[in-house]
Write a protein that binds this DNA or RNA. Structure first.
Lengths: 254, 254
DNA sequence: CCCAATTTGTTCGTATGTATC
DNA sequence: AGATACATACGAACAAATTGG
């Protein structure tokens, strides 16, 4: 009786992926650690090179490993950063429809929480970044392109706050929303004077936030951010024509 | 001048993945549509089977395509459900540390918003599901195992509300948090009588919610849910020993 | 700077399973 | 039932990249 007449329902490579994940948790592997190389996996799983390559590819797409060539190369555990999760979330939203109103429905509740959580956790370097950001956003834009870059800079202000947020999932959500808005802003041709007023409002809110942060006043930070979000939503919905419904390709990176 | 002497920096399969994504957005492909099959991709990209298989595998992991064997088989576009994004988010959180307190920090702001957004959008079938859920959770559990299943059922109550939430991203976050808590509950040995009181509190909140939903009272729904979350957090933190720090393996599906 | 070793990246040929007609 | 079309898997080879002597 042959040992392997068992009908297989799942793909071989999926089983290898499962085994690798189990190995990672079982051995408490940390980022930078080596995981079994192609020849080793071929031996341990008794399958061919192409199959283990598919499994490694899957883990690579999930952001769990990075592959390196050459001696000492192979698959190394990579701490899955936020990028793969954000990419999948964009894939998911590509087939849904999420408009600017939907983004702000979440942002209005998330950003105040992120901002409040960052109180007392801002390093001197981050304070400096925030101040630089405010002054850079205060300068009058000389061109439409410059105005667009300022708008992206304004979003960067919020990302700095997310950096200081100790809750990793909350920070992820905040950053994801910011990136989403950044994607929208490049695809939108807004009425320029209107956008100028928008920018002036934003930077004034940012100044107020900075002041409240210096006083470690969490309640005030939260209140200012909430007002900021309501105001931004108002501007956004006033400007918005339609929304980008293709998040599939990654965001344009500057 | 040959068309392809360009030095390649990225893997061949990654380029194919990019091309496929561009094709999807360019042709406005919808779920169920066919994408080029292995032989076609071999032809169009001038590479071998193994390479296109890696590319297809990557798209499969991202949840963008499903593969079918047999005649008429091949790669078909699948509307990327929430599962791949949730999986990646778990990968990400595996290397961070997120405790129950962190989960509830987000849940306290997300669930009231989800609940309020569901007001006026519950179908009759969903009302029936919610009512069935409440009565199922009202019965006194006869065993610890049954109590555990009731706790999972209570989370299902919130997932039904997320189903009725029209904001896809907000619903995703709510469901993700629920799944996370479901993962925690199976890994935790809680003090049984304490958990019993916990369950009674939960179901009474659910009853209040159901009542407010019948009256389409969004403000009351939001207020009840907020109180519910605060109460649940209190119970949770009282019960919690440690937290699962390995979300890598998928959630156990009942 | 080149050479050699090591490991991934890629190709081809072939065989098998599976679903459709 | 048989033929067809496609994914799945195996194995052997070669190419490219990286490291260290």
């Amino acid at each position: 009786m042959p040992p392997r007449p068992m009908r297989r329902r799942t793909k071989l490579s999926d089983g290898i992926v499962e085994d690798m994940k189990r190995l990672i948790v079982a051995e408490c592997l940390k980022p930078g650690d080596r995981v079994p190389s192609e020849p080793e996996l071929i031996e341990t799983h008794g399958c061919s090179k192409g199959t283990v390559r598919e499994a490694l590819k899957a883990l690579e797409v999930e952001g769990l490993v990075v592959m390196r060539t050459g001696p000492g190369g192979g698959a190394y555990l990579a701490d899955a950063g936020p990028e793969p999760a954000a990419r999948m979330l964009r894939n998911f939203l590509h087939f849904q429809h999420l408009d600017g109103k939907g983004v702000y429905q979440i942002r209005k509740i998330v950003e105040p929480e992120v901002a409040a959580a960052a109180v007392g956790r801002l390093s001197e370097a981050q304070f400096a970044q925030l101040e630089d950001n405010v002054v850079a956003c205060s300068e009058a834009p000389k061109s439409e392109e410059e105005q667009r870059r300022q708008r992206i800079l304004e979003l960067e202000f919020h990302n700095i706050l997310a950096d200081a947020c100790p809750n990793p999932l909350l920070a992820f959500i905040g950053r994801f929303l910011n990136d989403m808005l950044r994607d929208l802003v490049v695809l939108k041709k807004a009425y320029v004077p209107e956008r100028h007023r928008f920018g002036e409002c934003n930077v004034s809110y940012h100044r107020l936030l900075l002041e409240a942060y210096r006083q470690d006043d969490a309640a005030r930070v939260r209140a200012i951010m909430l007002a900021h979000m309501h105001d931004a939503e108002r501007h956004m919905t006033a400007l918005e024509g339609e929304v980008a419904n293709s998040f599939l390709l990654g965001f344009p990176r500057p």
